[in-house]
Amino acid sequence: MADMKSVETILEGHPDAGRDHLIPILQEVQAAEGYLSKAAITRVGLALDLPASKIFGVATFYNMFRFQPRGTYHVMVCRGTACHVKGSKRVLDMVEKVLKIAPGETSRDGLFSLEVVACMGACGLAPVVNVNGQFHAKVTPMKLQRILEECRSEEFSHV
């Protein structure tokens, strides 16, 4: 369960908020909690007098919102034009297959979460993948598989 205290603090920052404050509030909630929990959406709905179905509809319209907590390793695959030309589709397919998750989802062990972005501004390095802020250039499916395995073994070396 997400920490609802941050949601309350965010709502306090928007006194007399109406429906036009919805997206800024959702952005702040996601920045604070990493995702939009059911509890947070319901709470925001109560504050803005908006039905949960409506907020969920708005939030799913935009790629930036996610509804599952981030994993220990947050994988961002670029699907911008340059990366696409250089084969990012195959890279993405591989991640989905190996991690058994779709973009926006988090693996059940909580280790990995996947996000698709339109461009990271590093087209010269295409196809680009970003894991927890670190850029990986000219990624192939094979190369990314190794990266993911490294993440996994790093995680287990802590145990």
């Binding site: 959406i41 179905s53 969920f56 509809g57 799913t60 935009y62």
Partner: peptide
């Protein structure tokens, strides 16, 4: 005045569903 359902997702992936599908 119930709003049990709304559009979820966008474009070719859009469908009508309840809150949190």
């Amino acid at each position: 005045g119930v709003s049990a359902i709304d559009f979820i997702n966008r474009g070719s992936k859009a469908f009508v569903g309840t809150a949190f599908d």
